[in-house]
Write a protein that binds this DNA or RNA. Sequence first.
DNA 1: CGACGGGACGC
DNA 2: CGACGGGACGC
Length: 382
Amino acid sequence: MTNAMDIVIKNGSTNGSVDGNDESRTNLIVNYLPQTMTQEEMRSLFSSIGELESCKLVRDKISVLPASLQALNPALQQGQSLGYGFVNYVRPEDAEKAVNTLNGLRLQNKVIKVSYARPSSESIKGANLYVSGLPKNLSQPDLEALFAPYGKIITSRILCDNISDIEVIKKLLLNGIGLSKGVGFIRFDQRNEAERAIQELNGKTPKGYTEPITVKFANNPSNSAKAQIPPPLAAYLTPQAAAATRRLTAGALPSAGRISIGKSPLFAINKGLQRYSPLAGDLLANSILPGNAITGSGWCIFVYNLAPETEENVLWQLFGPFGAVQSVKVIRDLQTSKCKGFGFVTMTNYDEAVVAIQSLNGYTLGNRVLQVSFKTNKTKTA
DNA sequence: CGACGGGACGC
DNA sequence: CGACGGGACGC
């Protein structure tokens, strides 16, 4: 297994790569891309630095869509973005410049990471560890320090509780309870480094710790066998929507961690969803699909029972905490300029729109109970 | 107890 | 208590 063949670096014209091109100084890996970013958008961004040899956004190819629906739109045939990709420049100096200027760039709600891709190799796969039983006050540097003796750490992370409502924040502020769930991830450069860390740390109580920790290989994200969507519903869903639904079904709340304290109102997740929307379609009504999905222009949300004095900023404040908001619109009477009682909000990401609807439908704003749902196709003329 | 805009292929 | 992440090697 130990093979030095793939790490040969020479000054001359030859090297260890298969195709004879040394990519070690031109090929970049880009991580933490926004979910909605396409390969062409990625190409556009990185082309601004210099000429590209290639650009590849990695997508999952697992399809939840029947072939008949995919045939409607070629874009649906591709799986959802896995949030990372590769950019290979023609010139090493451009690659270097891309790392220096684009690493850390904020795109939508993400901060992208741009770094040199490691040479593709079997030895670097499956080097991600799942660690539990960590002290709640352990910092990320602490975690890395614990694992550093066993190899080169590529990434690390400590998971935190979802902050989905105001109660959690209150607890945090009043009691100073830590966010950490006591679990984290460590990705090593090499799998054998990860294996050694397991041998040395799993079940052990590190110095200064009071409890033993668990260290094992992290689950492979590709085979997360969570609740599946019933076929009739899946037939209407985009891959993104299906994935979001899977997460919701599994009880996980997407978009956690983005919360704006002090920008009230914040909201408890609404329990009794349906009764506030007697006339609205379901959350996943077929009337909203697949038109929105195909045009890719965002998810339009209908907001009803707004007060006559309502201004646009109210809608921004209501929906902003849930994710990327593209536009808001308060519908007004042309004569009086007073709000006619409803408005529209377009959000970029389906899963964020779902959470916003779930959270805001039934929410009492002033003395009015809002009704929030995906926009339907109703027209005034009816 | 009433319910789904308006503008428009754009640098 | 356990906890598996919006995404790190070309899905």
